[in-house]
Design a protein around this nucleic acid. Sequence first.
DNA 1: CTTCTGACA
DNA 2: TGTCAGAA
Length: 105
Amino acid sequence: MSDSRTPLYAISVAADLAETSIQNLRSYERHGLVEPGRTEGGTRRYSDHDVTQLLHIRSLLDQGLNIAGVQRVLRLEAEVAGLRASLLRDDAGPADSASGARDSR
DNA sequence: CTTCTGACA
DNA sequence: TGTCAGAA
């Protein structure tokens, strides 16, 4: 499977893809909006999924949301993604439907 | 490339 | 508060 979470781009490339500055990307990482992988040298490595998330973050920020709001949306989207995954996981029907949203931090 | 500090709207 | 800019 092509993992969309495989580290591909450096921070400069991710900044160009996300149409933002390197400093901003580091700010987002500091606020926990994104968690890019780290290479041996300690350089960040942004994956395709991270870039998509970055574009989403910029969209949310442009819409008037702040870092806290963006983090909230990101968390909710991650939660809905997990819920959707467990929903259409198998047609047999999830025996324990309770295993969806357990800890919402 | 990384981190920190400072300044601006 | 978020973004930009420079320095080590």
